[in-house]
Amino acid sequence: MTSEKRRPRPATQYGPTAATVAANVRRIRERRGLTIYALSGALEKAGRPIAASAVAKIERMERQVTVDDLMALSVVLGVSPATLLLPADSRIDTEITGGGQVHARDAWMWAWCREPLRMPEHFDEEVYDRLVAEFMLISRPLGMYSGPGGADGPSVD
Results as ranks from 00 to 15, higher is better:
4 E>A: 13
8 P>W: 00
10 P>W: 07
11 A>I: 14
13 Q>H: 14
15 G>W: 04
18 A>H: 15
19 A>T: 09
24 N>M: 00
26 R>F: 01
29 R>G: 06
29 R>C: 04
32 R>Y: 03
33 G>Q: 11
34 L>N: 00
35 T>V: 05
37 Y>S: 02
39 L>Y: 12
39 L>A: 10
40 S>D: 04
42 A>K: 15
43 L>V: 03
43 L>Y: 12
44 E>T: 06
45 K>V: 05
47 G>T: 07
48 R>C: 05
49 P>T: 10
50 I>F: 11
50 I>H: 11
51 A>K: 12
54 A>Q: 09
55 V>C: 06
57 K>Y: 01
57 K>C: 00
58 I>E: 03
60 R>H: 08
60 R>L: 08
62 E>D: 12
62 E>P: 02
63 R>Q: 15
65 V>N: 02
66 T>K: 07
69 D>R: 11
69 D>K: 11
70 L>T: 09
72 A>T: 03
73 L>S: 07
75 V>P: 00
77 L>F: 06
78 G>E: 10
80 S>H: 08
81 P>R: 10
81 P>T: 11
82 A>S: 14
83 T>W: 01
85 L>G: 03
86 L>C: 08
86 L>A: 07
87 P>A: 03
87 P>I: 00
91 R>M: 04
92 I>R: 14
93 D>M: 09
94 T>W: 05
96 I>D: 01
97 T>S: 04
98 G>M: 08
99 G>Y: 05
100 G>D: 10
100 G>L: 06
103 H>N: 14
107 A>P: 13
109 M>K: 12
110 W>Q: 12
115 E>W: 13
115 E>T: 10
116 P>M: 05
116 P>E: 06
121 E>M: 03
126 E>T: 12
126 E>N: 05
128 Y>A: 15
128 Y>E: 11
128 Y>Q: 12
129 D>Q: 13
136 M>E: 11
139 S>L: 01
141 P>W: 14
144 M>P: 00
147 G>P: 15
147 G>M: 10
149 G>K: 06
149 G>M: 03
151 A>N: 08
152 D>W: 03
153 G>M: 04
153 G>W: 09
157 D>E: 08
157 D>R: 12
